[in-house]
């Protein structure tokens, strides 16, 4: 991803979208490392996303139910404790079961490279580690939204 996209740039792109984008930020499992998601949520808010937060210690059922109740466009999953290969697929499974698999799912946290293709194969993309520029994360989400939700064949 090219650097140099800043908050102002994203704000303008997001403003032009046909609807307000709602993102559920969720931390499944017993994982309280929430600094990253709090930073991310403030950035999401500042670029113009509407943000819903699961709080820590959310179960997979709670996350999927919140996503459906709140009618979110994106779920951003965070896992810093090595349990991503358990919880991320469980979220995907549950979404499918509930017929909500149009929701875009992205992930992040401490995710070893070798797990990334496995997660991507089931639809959890991004999977960025700590220290990833916030613009990279927002660009990734916007790319997926444009392509999958708004069927616009261009990149941010």
């Amino acid at each position: 991803m090219e650097r140099g996209r800043n908050l102002q740039y994203f704000r303008e792109v997001i403003n032009k979208l046909p609807k307000r984008i709602k993102v559920l930020v969720a931390k499944p499992g017993l994982d309280a490392h929430d600094r990253g998601v709090h930073v991310l949520m403030r950035y999401f808010r500042d670029v113009g996303f509407e943000v819903v937060y699961s709080g820590i210690l959310a179960t997979v059922d709670e996350i999927v139910q919140t996503a459906i109740d709140e009618d979110v466009d994106v779920i951003a999953l965070s896992s810093m404790n090595g349990a991503h290969m358990v919880h991320f697929p469980a979220v995907i499974e549950k979404l499918r079961e509930k017929g909500a698999n149009d929701i875009i799912v992205v992930g992040g946290g401490i995710i070893p490279d070798e797990d990334k293709p496995k997660l991507e194969a089931i639809g959890v993309t991004g999977n960025y580690g700590p220290g990833t520029p916030l613009e990279t994360i927002v660009s990734h989400i916007l790319d997926r939204l444009l392509r999958e939700k708004f069927k616009i064949d261009s990149k941010v």
């Binding site: 090595g82 290969m85 358990v86 919880h87």
Partner: peptide
């Protein structure tokens, strides 16, 4: 059940 996937990890 709350421990699923997390035992001995961190």
């Amino acid at each position: 059940p709350r421990a699923f996937g997390e035992v001995g990890k961190m």
